[in-house]
Design a binder for these strands. Structure first.
Lengths: 294, 294
DNA sequence: AGGCACGATAAGTTTATCTTATCGTCATGA
DNA sequence: TCATGACGATAAGATAAACTTATCGTGCCT
């Protein structure tokens, strides 16, 4: 088997035309270099270096081999450079999962930003609920997922991107002040409309209203926030709306009311396999999401 | 230091996506491959392979590195192929020395043949007497020399190409038969004209007439055969003419007479440094010279 | 003739690399 | 649910590769 070491020694000889100086160049003793070169010649089945009384020269084959060796060593050096260099994030294929209560509100602003800042990124987006996203991520079918944290899986790491307030959405009522705040307890008498099972938003809303759960009348789960908001607009009940959806879901027939402090929030973040090397991609993406939200 | 071995192992993993099978592919055990791969990752400072529960995959960096590794390994394989392949002779630069009593007669026929059969040959010709040719050959300033053999130097090897008869050249005499032969002893009464000191041809001619040397009247040495032949044509004496020069030097005023058997000859051959790898070039050139003489 | 420069060779040591054995974790299946 | 098998990591000891120091042989130079 040929070794890079042998090629390095040959290159040194090509450069110095002297065994001793070549050895010094390689930080080994002359016999070590002599023997490796002999081994190389024996392996290739031809003499590469002509040892003469006064001088050392490459044979015709030696010159060609040394030239190829130099090219190989350069390629090796390039490889090392490449691997050791801080690699810019978000380059190449990125399979990104994102949940339905984020995607339609954040992506329209985030995608142009991403494309702008990371033109070499080749994004493959998958939208579904948290549980399947996590499974696909762990299985290796996704590289990153954007979802509500925490996600507690030992094989995953996560990074918080930003917090997203919950607002109360209810049918517009005459005489309501625009800057009014509402206590969670005030929801006790309302009919709470939620997304269908499996959406983390449903669980989070229930959690916000946890203390009052016995008082809440739950509607059958809807499959999209947009549907829920139509129900709300028509007086079927109230719902908790993530603030990031406010712009898109706002209508005259619904008023959006902030909670009193401390306002309940959901934490939006990014998760990736601990064993993957996507931390820097996640960090870069988190920044883009934060900027997109502003 | 990165090693080719590590690159080979990485390539095997890229191919199999499985440590055990990759190890089998490399004819080593799995721990050996695992450790070399870890060493490579540690050296490059980034993870190349993602070890997951069920599967193994290359990271983004791993894919790039594996691609470069494959290119490097291919270049190494090409180098080995190149070096091990029987290399066609007479390619590239060849610094050829040739003596003056051969060059003008053989080269006009040999050069077109050479160019025809070995178009990639880049020939650098030097013409001088044997002694300086041998010195330059040994010093490494020439690759091959064409001269009269034997040349006895321990650092040189030689190959006979062909033999070249000596003819007697004398002023044309009335009544001479065209197919007459001559005994060397018949030269005893003649005035022998020779090249100047240093030409091997001079020594060879003297050697042919060695037994009669006391009887021979020697002219001052001329510097070319052509000059000698002019002297012969004008009746200043006779000379020994190598047969290969006969065509070119023949005139009506000179007759060329063969010796009786065994005809004296000089041996034309090729010499090269034992330490160089020019044997195959020498062999190929010898064949061309032989063909050129025909 | 003696000293020096240079690459080859020999012997012994150090370093790399490999093998065998084993662990820990996860997935599978009765 | 517990046993089993697959897989990569790790540990310890063995083997092989590579190196160092010392020395040789040869040619060159003063």
């Amino acid at each position: 088997m040929m070794t890079l070491r042998q090629l390095r020694y040959l290159a040194a000889i090509a450069e110095t035309r002297h065994f001793g100086r070549a050895a010094a160049l390689c930080h080994v003793t002359q016999p070590a270099l002599s023997m490796q070169l002999q081994e190389l010649e024996h392996m290739l089945g031809c003499r590469l270096v002509e040892r003469r009384r006064n001088a050392v020269d490459l044979t015709a084959e030696g010159q060609e081999v040394a030239q190829r060796a130099a090219a190989i060593l350069a390629a090796v050096a390039d490889l090392e450079d490449y691997a050791r260099r801080e690699k810019p994030p978000l380059i190449g294929v990125l399979r990104l999962g994102i949940i339905p209560s984020i995607a339609p509100y954040l992506l329209p602003r985030a995608l142009p930003l991403l494309h702008d800042r990371f033109p070499q990124l080749d994004l493959r987006i998958r939208e579904t609920q948290t549980a399947p996203l996590v499974e696909e991520l762990i299985r290796g079918d996704l590289d990153l997922i954007v979802a509500a944290l925490p996600i507690d899986r030992p094989e995953l790491e996560t990074l918080n991107a930003f917090e997203d307030r919950f607002l109360v959405a209810r049918q517009t009522r005459a005489g309501a002040r625009a800057d009014a705040r509402m206590e969670p307890a005030a929801l006790a008498s309302e009919h709470l409309l939620l997304l269908e099972e499996g959406h983390c938003l449903r669980d989070q809303a229930l959690s916000v209203c946890g203390a009052l759960s016995s008082n809440i009348h739950m509607a059958f789960g809807a499959s999209s926030l947009s549907t829920v908001m139509h129900l709300v607009a028509n007086g079927y009940g109230i719902t908790l709306l993530p603030e990031m959806a406010a712009d898109m879901e706002r209508t005259d027939r619904v008023e959006l009311i902030r909670f009193t402090d401390p306002e309940p929030v959901r934490t939006i973040g990014i998760a990736w396999r601990r064993s993957s090397s996507r931390r820097s991609d996640a960090a870069a993406l988190a920044k883009v999401l934060l900027d997109a939200r502003a």
